Amino acid sequence: MDLGTGPMMAAEYQARRQRLLPPEEPSAPVLLVGTHNAVAARIAEEAGFDGCWVSSLEISATKGIPDRNLLGAKEMIDVAQTIRSATTLPVVVDCDNGYGTDLAAARVARELHLSGVTGMCIEDSAFPKRNSLIKSVDRSLESREAFAGRVARARAATGDDFVIVARTEALIAGLPLDDAIDRAQSYAEAGADIVVVHSNGGEVDDLWEIAKKWTGPARLASIPTAYTDVTLDELGHAGYGMVVYANHLLRGALATMTRLAAQLRRGGQLSALTGLAPIQEVLRLSGEPGVAAA
């Protein structure tokens, strides 16, 4: 595996970018999964995913803090570098709203790019953001023009081989569908490679209407966390070029840890525990088999 000991050569940047943005439209969506640490990234790669998504919700949760712009850029860069070093997959980092200013967004884009990360996602929530899946809070957005400027600033800081995903929270803020699509169009024209019109569980028909109306220069992505019955094939046929399963590996790990913690607290024989990976699997995923060769 690439050990990530410095900025990658331009050819490698391009190779990873093309895994997220193939020169021709793929027959199925490019598929990313949330990876909150290096082990999750290696599992994702072995499972056949196309890329890693470093979710601000997942990283906030692992640090025991709410997903409310409390993570700093340096924290996310450090996690992203660890993950990037553990996998050959492209890594895309969820950078909230770019940490509140155009200069902050441009700086984190440049730092991620120099560290070998393939791309970043920024959203048009006003600072401080609220997690998209919380439905009981008031939300405000940056103006369309201001956020398009932020996308353009990040693009200018990195050049064309860094992937920029622009996400609009317009539907979550209660704006009409056409307004959400207009925002996404502006962000694509400002330099985003991929756009997400995000939703936290409205009408599933919105997913199909967005794809039907999309004419922008960027590819369309979906983060279908709230649409649990929608399939990858359906999203691909509708026109989505990328699908992100943003938080499911962490949620699965939490469910297993909760169950095992209760079993361990009750005592008894360790041999009675169910659902444990063998210790040799822990050693393998941590890189132990390659130590002698290294």
Rank of each mutant, 00 (worst) to 15 (best):
A109Q: 06
A109T: 02
A109I: 03
R110A: 12
R110T: 15
E111M: 06
L112I: 10
L112E: 06
L112N: 06
H113Y: 10
H113K: 13
L114G: 02
L114V: 09
L114N: 06
S115E: 08
G116D: 04
G116F: 10
G116S: 05
V117H: 07
G119F: 04
G119T: 03
G119N: 06
M120Y: 07
M120A: 12
M120N: 09
C121R: 06
C121E: 05
C121D: 03
C121Y: 01
I122F: 02
E123P: 02
D124L: 06
S125K: 10
A126R: 14
A126G: 11
A126Y: 10
A126M: 08
F127A: 10
F127L: 11
F127H: 09
P128H: 09
K129C: 04
K129E: 06
K129L: 05
R130P: 04
R130T: 15
N131Y: 08
N131M: 09
S132M: 07
S132Q: 10
S132K: 08
L133E: 08
L133P: 03
L133I: 12
I134L: 10
I134D: 10
I134A: 08
S136F: 09
S136K: 15
V137A: 08
V137Y: 12
D138I: 06
D138K: 15
R139N: 07
L141A: 07
E142G: 01
E142I: 04
E142P: 00
S143T: 15
S143I: 11
R144I: 13
R144K: 14
E145R: 06
E145D: 15
A146C: 03
F147A: 03
F147H: 05
A148L: 04
A148F: 02
A148V: 04
A148E: 02
A148W: 01
G149W: 00
G149C: 02
G149H: 01
G149Q: 02
R150G: 00
R150V: 00
V151W: 01
V151Y: 01
A152E: 00
A152I: 00
A152M: 00
R153I: 00
A154Q: 02
R155I: 00
R155Q: 03
A157M: 04
A157S: 08
T158M: 04
T158V: 12
G159E: 03
G159W: 05
D160G: 14
D160P: 12
D161K: 09
F162P: 12
V163E: 04
V163Y: 11
V163M: 06
I164F: 05
I164H: 07
V165H: 01
V165G: 03
A166W: 04
A166K: 03
A166C: 07
T168C: 05
T168I: 06
E169K: 04
A170S: 15
A170T: 14
A170F: 02
L171I: 15
L171F: 05
L171V: 13
I172F: 12
I172M: 14
I172Q: 13
I172P: 07
I172G: 08
A173Q: 12
G174Q: 08
L175G: 03
L175I: 10
L175Y: 14
L175T: 13
P176H: 14
P176T: 02
P176N: 08
P176K: 13
L177F: 13
D178S: 15
D179A: 15
A180K: 07
I181F: 14
I181M: 13
I181C: 14
D182A: 15
R183D: 08
R183P: 13
A184M: 11
A184H: 09
A184G: 07
A184P: 09
